[in-house]
Amino acid sequence: MKSGGVVFAIKPFSMHDGPNLRTTVFLKGCPLRCRWCHNPEGLHVDSLVVHDREKCIECGTCLEVCPHGALGSVNLGQNEKLGRCQLCLTCVDACPALARQSTGVQVTVPEVMAQLLKDLPFYEESGGGVTFSGGEPLFQPEFLKALLEGCGNHSIHRAVDTSCFADRRVVESIAEHTDLFMVDLKHMSEEAHQEAVGVGVATIHENIRMLVQMDKKIRLRFPLIPEFNDGDENIRETAAFVEALESVTRIDVLPYHQTGSRKYQKLGLQYAGSDIGIPDQQKITAVVEAFRLRGLEVQVGG
């Protein structure tokens, strides 16, 4: 599907998704399954109709309008007869309280571009631009490429926030139209990575090296997940990996936070990260210092 794709949010004035004032487009679908993922609505390309109990006024409009009889009662919260839901979104369009929502929207490239161009003056004034995130933006490569080209036509700075877990040729073709990559170094060990994220790390590392060779700007980020990747050895190896890249001298430390947990509730999902502790300031400082000792520039937050 070249002309369109599925997104789950387009957020203007995003403060933490790259340099200066940006709009972030969140594309749906991701091959990774990070335990701590704070955008669970981005995991699957397919959408779900979800129900927000706080907003619901129990008026019954959704029951009345559903053409497929997929909804049993108003306030059971979840799509109790989900099997019948055809994602026609009739209930979403009819709900007066915005309690019925779809976790994703099928959109065309021109629709997204119109949205992105609204904030052009902010990008220009601040030196910001658009960030494509997810989910995993490379999961919808054609759609992503079309959007990147669209931004390029308006000289908008383009950042792609990716795991880099994708076919080498996909990364290469996207790189042509990207000004900045933002990539996580979640863990250096193949096994640990495989276990926590669901995929190995080798492809990711190869792709990063390729981007460096292509002379692409990269921001590497270290999501600080206590008890997972904050051990001395992993920090050392992470730093060594960065040093070997030569053109990259900085790492951004992103301390784990639990803001995503409410989203899981809304989606009716179990949050696998609920037992992960939030790193305290001391921990953050220790990790920052460890990277600094290895000669890296460090910034906390992205």
Partner: peptide
């Protein structure tokens, strides 16, 4: 850094 972003917000408003 966030203050710089706020500054950009203000300046864009004025530019408009």
């Amino acid at each position: 850094r966030s203050l710089e972003k706020l500054a950009a917000l203000v300046k864009t408003y004025f530019r408009l």
